[in-house]
Simulated scan of single mutants.
Amino acid sequence: MIILLMLVPLSLMLLAFAIGAFIWAVRRGQFDDMDTPALDILSDDTSPPAQQGTRDRQASVHVD
Rank of each mutant, 00 (worst) to 15 (best):
M1G: 09
I2S: 10
I2F: 12
I3E: 15
I3C: 07
L4K: 13
L5N: 13
M6P: 01
M6N: 08
M6Q: 14
M6G: 10
L7H: 04
L7C: 04
V8D: 02
V8L: 09
P9Y: 01
P9Q: 01
L10N: 06
L10A: 15
L10H: 04
S11I: 07
M13D: 03
M13Y: 11
M13E: 05
L14H: 03
L15K: 05
L15P: 01
A16F: 07
F17A: 10
F17M: 08
F17N: 08
F17C: 07
A18Q: 04
A18R: 03
I19H: 02
G20V: 01
G20W: 01
G20M: 02
A21R: 07
A21Q: 05
A21V: 04
F22W: 08
F22H: 06
W24G: 07
W24M: 09
W24E: 09
A25S: 12
A25I: 02
R27P: 00
R28Q: 12
G29P: 00
G29I: 01
G29F: 01
Q30L: 09
F31S: 02
F31I: 02
F31V: 02
D32M: 07
D33C: 01
D33N: 02
D33L: 00
M34I: 14
D35V: 15
T36N: 02
P37Y: 00
A38R: 03
A38P: 00
L39R: 05
D40A: 12
D40C: 03
D40Q: 15
D40R: 13
I41S: 12
I41V: 09
L42K: 08
S43D: 10
D44P: 00
D45N: 07
D45A: 13
T46W: 04
T46L: 15
T46V: 14
S47K: 13
P48K: 11
P48M: 12
P49Q: 06
P49S: 08
A50T: 09
Q51L: 04
Q51P: 01
Q52T: 07
Q52C: 03
G53A: 12
G53W: 03
T54H: 11
R57S: 13
R57W: 13
R57T: 10
R57C: 06
A59I: 08
A59T: 11
A59H: 12
A59G: 09
S60E: 14
V61R: 15
V61D: 11
V61Q: 15
H62N: 08
H62F: 12
H62W: 04
H62Y: 08
H62A: 14
V63R: 15
V63F: 05
V63S: 10
V63P: 00
V63L: 10
D64C: 05
